[in-house]
Structures are given as C-alpha cells and as structure tokens.
Write a protein that binds this DNA or RNA. Structure first.
Length: 744
DNA sequence: TTTAGGG
DNA sequence: CCCTAAA
C-alpha cells in the first residue's frame, strides 16, 4: 500500500468530521481494503542486530490508523460506487487547528474508534554500512531471532543475547515527530519501548510519543540515540504490564491505551520525497465499545446509540473543547485498543469491555487503574501522517488525494520542512555520527530504514442493502478479526536478502551472501505474523462465509482504476510456517538457502486464510454479515509473482553437470536430490531447464553467451554428457521398441 | 509430483 | 522462468 508515517500531532478528524453519509444506505458496495496490518501498537522501533561485530540498526515504523476514520473516508469515497479499492488513507488536515484547545478538542472527539492496525512488513534498507574489517570475517550468526518469547516484563530488557533486540532509536523517529508536533506535552522519556503486546513475543517494539515538545525531545533524542538501553520504557501495549514510565504532562494521557502509541519514524529520504498526510488519530475516544457483550466474540460492534451515550463522557473526560457535532457522531466507535483489551480479557473469561468495565482490568498485573482509564482518553495528541499511501513508484492508483496532502502538510506545519530538516540533521548527528563515521572509520553501526511496507490485501464483500452502520460494524469486525488473526500472534522478523527470504536463522551472514560491500540494500526485513500464535480458531463453519472472489459480481463493475496492488507494495509475507534449518550445511551453494522468493500475495493470503483463518468472518452476523475473502486474484497472472531470478553459479553448474553425468538426463528428481537437495529454490524443473540452457550454451559460440561465463570445461562436459545420455536414451527406446515388437 | 517441451 | 500436458 504505501508508506505511512505517523507524526505526532493532532488526530485527523477531518475525514470523519463530516458524517454526511451516516445512516445512508448504500446501494452497492463492495470494497477491498488494503489494510496494513499492524499487530500491535508498534510504532517506531528500531532494531539492533548484531552481525558479528557489526551492528545494524533497524528502525521501522508501524502506524496505527484509526479504522473508523479510514472507514469513514472510504465510505464517503465509495458512496454510490460499487467498489472502491484501496482508498487512500484519509489525512487530516492540520490546517485550522490551533494547538492547545483545538487539539484537545480533536482528542476528545475521536471518531476514530478503531485504530486500525496498520502495518507492515517493513522493508528496511540499510542506510549506511559499516566497514569494519573485523566484522567481515566475524560475522557469524547474524540475524537471528529469538525463539524465546520475550517476556512482557522484560520488555526493555531485551538483550543482545537474543539474536536481536529492538530498541527504539530515539534519534530517528522522534525527530520528525517533534518537529511537527505542536503539542505541549512533554515526554520525559524520549522514547518508550513497548513490548509488543503479548502477541508479539519476539518482537518488541518501541513506541514513542510524539507529543513531547520538540525541543525537549530533541535533546533527549540526541542524547539517547546512543544509549539505547536508557530510553524510558513505556508500554502502550495492551498489556498492563507495559505501562509507560514516561512523564507526561498532565494532558498527556498517553495512558495506557495501547493505541496511544504514536509512531513516528524519520525517514529522511521519504520525507523529502513525499510527506503526506496525516492519518490517524486515536486515543481520545473515550467511548467504550458497545456495552453489550459481544455476541460475536471479540469484535466490537459500533452502534449509533452507543455513540450518543458516550458523548457526554467524552466531553467530560476531555474537559476540553467539545467536539463538533459531526465528530460526535463518530465518537462512539470503539477503539481498537479497547477491542484488544477485550480480546485479551476474553481469554481470561471476561467478556465486556466497555469503558465502564475497564476497571475490571485493574486487577491485572500492572492493571489499569480507574484513573488511568480516564486519563487515557484525552490523550491524543499525536498526529499521524502518512506518506504516499500509494507509493508513487507504484504508479499506482493514487486517488488524486495525494497531492493535496502534501501541500497541506507543508502548509499547515509551517516550518515543517525546516523541522524535518532539523530532525534529519539531528538524526544524523545523533545516530549517524557514529554510523557515518563508521563508514570510513571502523565503527560498526549500520543504519537501516524502512523503505516500504507490505500490506496484505483483504477483500470484503458487503451486501447491497447493508447500511453504513452495519458496514462499519461488519467491516470493523472482519477487518479486525482478520488482522488479529493474522497478527494476533507475535511478530516474527523475517530477513529478506535480495528479495529472497532467508529463513535459516543459523546461517551466517557470509553464508547468506550478505556482506558489507555487497549490496546492503538488498537486505530487508519483514514483519510477519508469528506462526505460533497466529490463529484464532474460528469454527469451520465460519469459513462458509468466505466467498470466493469470483462470486462478487459487483466487482466487475468496479471503477476502472485497477485495484491492483501497487508494485511498490509487496505483499506481506505471511509465511505461516517458516522452516528453519538450523544445522543445515549449505555446501557449495551459498544461495541455496535463500528461500523462496517472497510469497506471492495471493498465496500468502490464501495461506493465511486457510491456516490461520484470519479471514474468516465472524460467525453469526446478521444478514449483513460480511464476507471477507483474501483478495485472490482471479487470475494468477495478476498477482503471481514471477520467481526471482537466481542465476546458477558456476559451482551449481558444476554440481549439476556432475550429477547429470552420473545420473543422466531425465532423472531430474534424482539430480536434485543428489546435488541440490539443500537448495530448495532449485526445483527439478529448474535443473532440467538449466541443463537445457547449458546444452544450448555449450553449442553456441562464446560470443553469444551471456551472463556469468561458464567454464568451457564444464560446457564440454555438458556436451559430452548430453550426447552420451541422449544416446543411452535412444538405445533404451530402441530396446524398448524391439521388445514390444517381439511381444507382438 | 515429476517429465518433457514449448514459450 | 513459466506453464502444461502427460505420465
């Protein structure tokens, strides 16, 4: 989908502010959503990976988008349309908003009931690389994730022992945020580390609040950049355990809301290129989920009545400006965070989670206190911006909204550019001082930044007679469900090198072909749902709801704009069951390990759907039940990604030749087992094809050959072997024929 | 799934 | 590399 950046600040209520369409009936509406899925409230986090002597700093940012806002936005866009696809994320205009009061207002009126988790599998690119000599040979195990779940309590304590630990890099993300931020709140701690909610065991994410004042923050940031361990930790996560330890100004009620976390990250490059809009808002919504026990389970149902009811509360609690009427309408929407909490609780047997009931949770470890719950609401001072939800590179479908956002952003935040630059500078200073210096010197830090996110695609079909309300509810649920199902578990960090997933954690960098001088760009990371906890089993019956894509007639009428996922956006890799081959020998083929290329979207989705049942809609909805289906491309052509090209190395060719000499042609399976058993990406068909090309290559003149030159010696052997086995084959046939004749 | 071939 | 018919 695109890249999202969250900046601190106001919530974007614009979109939501005009609930014109509320209550209207949609005639035909089917949508497909590309939702970034974010497991938790990850916001900006940085990962430090130790590669031998080299540390790679990764930062990734996850943004939370208010589902409702987004939804509302979509609804508006789609009204009257049969289908809309991947609407751009609404951006809030910061324009008229003044800071203080206004802001509060925004906080209070959050229509954004659900924060949709958006997310990501971020691809992190190396910004710099360290050149330390020693590291080159030392890199042994480089990227490894800890199998051990991180205990919640230990959020901040992730240590190097584990293959990697993530710590927020203060220097980066914060900078951007604070620049933009207008909020008066200050953070005592520059960054907070959130442990991922229970869900993400392996991944801890750091969140930082943008709210803090810019100046203050800067100081902190820069300072902290170097001491990762120090950052104060706050946890916004669902777990109570992860409470923030950050001092917030009074206002800041960053509270325990999970969703509060704001994400920001600085991506200098990106910013430069395209800052865009603000996406989400969040926390302030005080409202609770519908008080009714959720019949369906975990998904919150949004209802109008609820909204109204909540209104008062919100105002009170916020004590700030009242939300505009319009906004109020939306308030009721439950927030994701709440939802989550509820969900968590459900596990424990608790059912409802409305604002009222929250207190119940107090008992939990680090339980939320009533006070806290109240504080939570007012918090939203963050502004979320996203950059190009549809990456330009995608060539994709931009809604035409894109341009404006940017403008607004710049305009609204006067000095933004300045700030950004400043931020950048700061970042550069803080972090990169070392990093860059290292470039030339021996410092061993490498900085990574997220280049893109992969967003899975969900397809939601909605009956024509559905009301918007139902749509919201359903959608929320389904989407949430899907999201949770997928991401409910912990996140797993995947390493992608040159487009291939490297699954073998035990593999050394060297084995993986990752080297400093080598294209570090080629190194990427993905956040994937953790297989272990991924699924929420829904009854099989639930599946019945899933509709094949084909069934969606309305789709045919969809707007011309192809819903195609922008190229830039790759599908999240959801390999539910990555296989690890810890002890495996790579033998000659370094590349052998690179696992399969990124799974094609469809595949991954399907897999998800199947395995985790992520997409299974809630069981019993009304007639209005929505069916969520993985966006399967009807035709393979659309989505199926061509496997990445993996030219055969000379060593591979040699192995192939040797095997064929021995086994002959026509026994590719044996050849594979014999010579390429470890190279999973080489199929017998590949070997056969390679042999075919080798034969061809051997026959043509050297001048005509392309690619990595194959030693003539090998080519000669190829011809010889080919001739020999061809002859054998011919003989076999002759023999066979003669036998048959005899029989006849 | 593997082969064998065409694209 | 992909796609497919045939085993």
């Amino acid at each position: 989908m695109g890249n999202f950046w969250v900046l601190e600040g106001e919530s974007c209520s614009n979109l939501c502010s005009e609930p014109d369409w509320v209550g209207e009936k949609i005639l035909g509406f089917s949508t497909s959503l590309l939702f970034p899925l974010v497991p938790k409230k990850l916001s900006v986090s940085s990962v430090k990976i130790r590669f031998g002597l080299v540390d790679l700093m990764l930062s990734f940012c996850v943004i939370f988008v208010s589902f409702l806002d987004y939804f509302a936005y979509i609804a508006r866009l789609t009204e009257g349309m049969y289908r809309y696809e991947v609407p751009p994320i609404p951006r809030a205009t910061r324009s008229a908003r003044g800071r203080g009061n206004v802001r509060k207002k925004s906080d209070s009126n959050e229509m954004c009931a659900f924060d949709l988790l958006t997310t990501v599998a971020g691809k992190l690119l190396l910004e710099g690389e360290s050149t330390s000599n020693s590291s080159e040979k030392d890199r042994s195990v480089v990227v490894k994730y800890t199998a051990d779940p991180v205990k919640e309590d230990e959020d901040t304590s992730l240590k190097e022992n584990k293959g990697f630990f993530i710590s927020p890099i203060v220097s980066e993300a914060p900078v951007v945020n604070h620049c933009l931020s207008k909020s008066t709140d200050t953070l005592s701690g520059p960054a907070s580390v959130i442990t991922s909610s229970d869900c993400s065991e392996k991944l801890s994410s750091g969140e930082r609040f943008v709210n803090g004042e810019s100046k203050v923050e800067n100081g902190n940031c820069s300072t902290k950049a170097e001491q990762e361990a120090d950052f104060s930790s706050c946890t916004l996560g669902a777990d109570s355990k992860k409470q923030m330890k950050i001092d917030l100004s009074n206002d800041a009620k960053i509270s325990t809301n999970k969703r509060d976390a704001i994400c920001s990250s600085e991506f200098p490059d990106l910013w430069d290129r395209k800052p865009s809009m603000l996406v989400a808002l969040d926390n302030t919504v005080k409202l609770s989920l519908s008080t009714d026990p959720d019949p369906f389970g975990s998904f919150p149902v949004i209802r109008n009545d609820v909204q109204l009811a909540n209104k008062d509360d919100d105002e009170k609690s916020c004590g700030s400006i009242q939300p505009s009427p319009r906004n109020k309408a939306f308030r009721p929407a439950p927030r994701v965070g709440d939802w989550r909490m509820r969900k968590l609780r459900d596990d424990e047997g608790h059912v409802n989670v409305d604002s009222e009931t929250r207190h119940v949770y107090q008992n939990r470890k680090n339980g939320y206190t009533a006070e806290r719950s109240q504080r939570d609401f007012p918090i939203k001072k963050r502004k979320l911006y996203y950059c190009n939800s549809f990456s330009n590179s995608d060539g994709g479908s931009s809604d035409g909204i894109s341009s404006s956002p940017t403008k607004d952003l710049n305009r609204d935040t006067s000095g933004y550019s300045l700030a950004s630059s400043g931020a950048r500078a700061a970042a550069a200073t803080s972090i990169s001082k070392g990093a860059r210096a290292s470039f030339r010197s021996s410092d061993s830090h490498v900085k990574l930044k997220i280049k893109s996110f992969r967003v899975p695609e969900l397809f939601v079909e909605i009956p024509e007679n559905s009301t918007i309300g139902s749509l919201k509810a359903c959608k929320s649920r389904t989407v949430m469900e899907a999201v949770t199902a997928i991401l409910g578990g912990s996140l797993h960090i995947g390493v992608v090198f040159q487009g291939k997933k490297v699954r073998d954690d035990s593999k050394t960098l060297f084995q993986a072909g990752i080297s400093h001088d080598d294209k570090l760009d080629a190194l990427g990371f993905t956040l994937e749902p953790n297989p272990s906890r991924a699924s929420q089993p829904l009854g099989p019956e639930g599946r019945s709801c899933v509709l094949p894509c084909e069934t969606c007639q309305p789709l045919t009428r969809c707007s011309p704009a192809p819903a195609v996922i922008p190229n830039g956006i790759q599908q999240g890799t959801y390999n539910v069951f990555p296989d690890h081959h810890p002890g495996k020998n790579l033998s000659n083929f370094i590349e052998s390990d690179h696992d399969s290329a990124p799974s094609s979207p469809d595949t991954s989705l399907e897999r998800n759907g199947a395995d985790s049942r992520a997409l299974v809609p809630v069981a019993a909805m009304d007639a209005e039940v929505l069916a969520v289906v993985p966006m399967r491309k009807p035709k393979r052509s659309e989505t199926a990604q061509r496997r990445i090209r993996r030219p055969f190395s000379v060593s591979e060719v040699e192995a192939l030749v040797q095997a064929v000499e021995k086994l002959g042609t026509g026994r590719w399976r044996d050849v594979k087992m014999r010579a390429f058993d470890i190279a999973k990406h080489r199929t017998c068909v590949d070997l056969k094809d390679k042999w075919k090309t080798l034969v061809h290559t051997a026959r043509i003149s050297p001048q005509q050959r392309r690619g990595e030159p194959v030693p003539q010696e090998l080519l000669d052997r190829v011809l010889i072997a080919h001739a020999y086995w061809s002859q054998q084959q011919a003989r076999q046939q002759m023999k066979h024929q003669s036998e048959t004749r005899l029989l006849l």
